[in-house]
Amino acid sequence: MGDVGQTPRTLSGLKAGESAVVERVDADDLLARRLLEIGFYPGAKVELVASMWPADDPVAIRVGGATFALRRQEAERVKIR
């Protein structure tokens, strides 16, 4: 994976109502695999439905026809473009 030279955006950086496309999920641990399994694979379209105050934790994300609630540390694993 080429480094773009800046910190890539993650799911937790999205604003409510904003859409994006998943670029990748880093690493190959249980969390990464589960994120992939529930639909956050490269190329998947995502939309942020809502995020909690403060610090956007957790967030509610629409992906592949479903909605998931993710904690910040989970959302940050999903890099987007």
Binding site: F68, A69, L70
Partner: peptide, 11 residues
């Protein structure tokens, strides 16, 4: 320790 939430919000 880390906590997982990862909860589906069904229609």
């Amino acid at each position: 320790d880390t906590h997982l939430l990862m909860l589906e919000l069904p229609d």
